[in-house]
């Protein structure tokens, strides 16, 4: 969006033409003021050049594109919450069905995709689906724009075919940690992604392979932590983040996340430790199986993985911040 906004604009236009939509919205987080300026400018230029608006490229088709700014709500990345927000409402998650493709924005059928998908559309059309399909492995075809971040020497976005291992990405592309200390954990797929220990770094970037280890590729974000990380604090943060960003509609997420923070605190403080560990597992089950959307449903991923692979950090003996 910041360096090649036209790729997204083109992708959305293609998608719009494909489904017969004549209005597209880019729902952009307000935390990205730079992207906001660039996208607006790009849309303005594309419209002036006849690539957007009425009768685009003399095709007798119209496609209008508008950037709508979020207002500080992570949950609005969830597709139904995003639609509510675009409608000018509280970003509360909708129960599905109906799926947005049937009844979406303003009650109309709506395609909701992420930037990566729409960004890939133009090159797929240009080079043919076969070419795109040739990349990747198993059922995960094509490429993934990996965002390498955190404590890493060379961070940034790398577009790779599925199948490369996490270790290759972090070590070969990233060059190890920024701090120069050993890597201890890698979080893959955003704040709701699992923390992976060294034993799992050889997992290839493939949806099925990640699902098999109860992790996810998600949006392709990779965050590297060195050996100073306190994984109990990270687990606690996952719950805390969920508590801060939950829309509050469903009970497992609304109350569960807050209780999660409290239970983890009791565990690390050695209060009735064994029972609280059981309770935390129960809570993770409840959130995972009972939540209305992925926010509450996936918050247990980082928590459980930290608890499983970095249990020593929950002993209450490791030095913790906060």
């Amino acid at each position: 969006m910041e360096t090649d906004p036209y790729q997204l604009i083109e992708g959305m236009t293609i998608a719009g033409l494909a489904v017969g939509a004549n209005q597209g919205y880019i729902y952009l987080r307000s935390e990205y003021p730079v992207a906001h300026k660039i996208l607006n400018k790009a849309i303005e230029r594309a419209t002036e050049a006849g690539f957007l608006g009425k009768n685009i490229c003399n095709s007798n088709s119209d496609f209008f594109l508008e950037v709508r700014l979020g207002a500080g709500a992570y949950i609005c990345g969830e597709e139904t919450s995003l639609l509510e927000s675009l409608e000018g409402k509280r970003g509360m998650v909708r129960a599905k069905p109906p799926l947005p493709a049937i009844e979406g924005l303003f009650g109309k059928p709506t395609v909701v995709n992420n930037v990566l998908t729409l960004g890939a559309a133009a090159s797929i059309l240009e080079q043919g689906s076969e070419t795109y399909k040739d990349f990747g492995m198993g059922r995960s075809r094509g490429t993934l724009a990996v965002q390498l971040a955190g404590n890493v020497k060379r961070g940034g976005v790398i577009e790779l075919a599925f199948g490369v291992t996490l270790r290759e990405v972090v070590e070969d592309f990233g060059g190890g940690t920024y701090s120069g200390r050993p890597i201890r954990a890698i979080q893959m797929g955003g704040p709701l992604g699992a923390f992976l220990p060294a034993s799992q770094w050889d997992t290839p970037l493939d949806y099925e392979a990640f699902a098999a280890i109860k992790a996810m590729i998600g949006h392709g974000g990779i965050v590297v932590f060195d050996d100073t990380v306190d994984m109990a604090a990270q687990a606690r943060f996952a719950m805390e983040f969920c508590a801060v960003e939950s829309c509050g509609k469903c009970t497992p997420c609304r109350i569960g996340a807050t209780r999660g923070v409290e239970v983890i605190d009791r565990i690390v403080n050695n209060q009735d430790r064994d029972n609280n560990l059981i309770l935390l597992t129960d809570l993770c089950d409840t959130m995972e199986l009972g939540s209305l959307c992925a926010m509450g449903g996936m918050t247990p991923f980082p928590v459980r993985s930290a608890l499983t692979y970095f249990a020593e950090d929950f002993s209450g003996e490791s030095p913790r911040e906060n």
């Binding site: 935390e31 003021p33 992207a35 500080g72 992570y74 971040a149 955190g150 404590n151 961070g155 960003e245």
Partner: peptide, 20 residues
């Protein structure tokens, strides 16, 4: 506080008004 300014490759980040 803010949860991600989209500048994760160059952490840690902060925002002052509209500048990151």
């Amino acid at each position: 506080p803010v949860y991600c300014l989209g500048n994760c490759a160059c952490s840690p980040s902060m925002r002052i008004d509209d500048d990151i």
